[in-house]
Amino acid sequence: MKPDAHPAIDAGTLHRLTAFSDDPAGGNPAGVWNGPALPPVEAMQQLAAELGYSETAFLAPLVGDERTIRYFSPSCEVPFCGHATIASGVVLGTSSGMGTYRLQTPVGLVPVSVRLENGRPVAALTSVEPRQEPASTELVAAVLACLGWGAGELDPELPPLKAFAGSWHLVLAARHAGRLARLDYPFEVLRELMLAEGLLTLQLIWRAQPALFQARNPAPSCGLREDPATGSAAAALGGYLRALAQVPPGGRITVLQGEAMGRPSRLEVTIPATGGIVVSGTAVALTTP
Results as ranks from 00 to 15, higher is better:
L195P: 00
L170K: 06
M194E: 10
Y185W: 12
A196G: 14
L170S: 08
R182F: 06
H176E: 12
P186S: 08
A196H: 15
R191G: 05
F164A: 02
P186T: 07
R191P: 08
E197A: 11
L183T: 14
Y185S: 09
A163D: 10
T201G: 01
L190F: 10
A165N: 07
L158C: 03
A181H: 13
E192R: 15
Y185A: 05
G166Y: 13
Y185K: 06
A173G: 00
D184I: 02
A165T: 00
G166P: 12
G166F: 12
D184V: 05
A174H: 04
L180M: 07
A196E: 14
K162S: 00
L195I: 05
F164Y: 15
L180I: 13
A174K: 01
R191K: 15
A174R: 04
R191S: 11
T201Y: 08
L161E: 13
A196W: 13
E188A: 12
G166L: 12
G198V: 02
H169L: 05
L170P: 02
M194I: 06
F187Q: 07
P160M: 03
A181S: 12
R175E: 04
H176K: 06
R179T: 14
L172T: 02
R182D: 13
D184E: 15
W168H: 03
L202A: 04
F187I: 05
E192D: 14
